[in-house]
Design a protein around this nucleic acid. Sequence first.
DNA 1: GCCCAGGGGGCTC
DNA 2: GAGCCCCATGGG
Length: 228
Amino acid sequence: MRTDKKLMEIYDSLLGYFGPRGWWPGDSRFEIIIGAILTQAISWKNVEKAILALKAADVFTEDKILTVSPEKLADIIRPALYFRQKARKLQVTMDYIRSRYDCDYDLMFSETLPVLRNDLLSLWGIGEETADSILLYAGNYPVFVVDSYTRRIFYRLGMVDENISYRQMQQFMQNKVPPDTAIYNEYHALLVALGANYCKKSRPDCLNCPLDQFCNKLKIMQENYRGE
DNA sequence: GCCCAGGGGGCTC
DNA sequence: GAGCCCCATGGG
């Protein structure tokens, strides 16, 4: 691995513009894991509502999530959308954490990265992005979290293929960014900030992106897009 | 009315 | 493995 200058320039530009994002929102590893599941395919503000609802209903421990009925749990997390599926995902994951580790997160995150990642991926409802979010943000493992923004942004910058796989995109980042959990943490959060505000799916242009270096490159991509 | 949110499961071929 | 559909709702 050697650090790629361009990737770090992008990181520095984003950090300078947006500032540290303070991720992951959440006061505990338990709360980070809950948030990682609830945020699937939705924005964070809806997750906040659902987490507040869980706290208000006094259903915010591993045991209590496993005790309430799936229907009741789904009703509580309704603001997070896909609530029936996500209720099941929360219970599946909490059951795993309780039965395997007795809710001991120090024990859980003392597992080796490949072992814990495989275990998480075997759970119903935990895919690669959610597993890696848990590993990085709750477990401090040096894994780069890839999401739709990551692929879209680097595709529009002309640096990766449009349909690059999750693993390929992750390897791309991990081969170019030093394996520092603080940087991986911040980089992903910054890409989400850029993507959500200036890199919409339906808009191949830059949406007045504040960063000149992005703006110019995205305009080039826009020209190519129109030319197709 | 249409698009889209910090994905993932399940099915088909 | 790629390409679909489903889950589900509110805000811009």
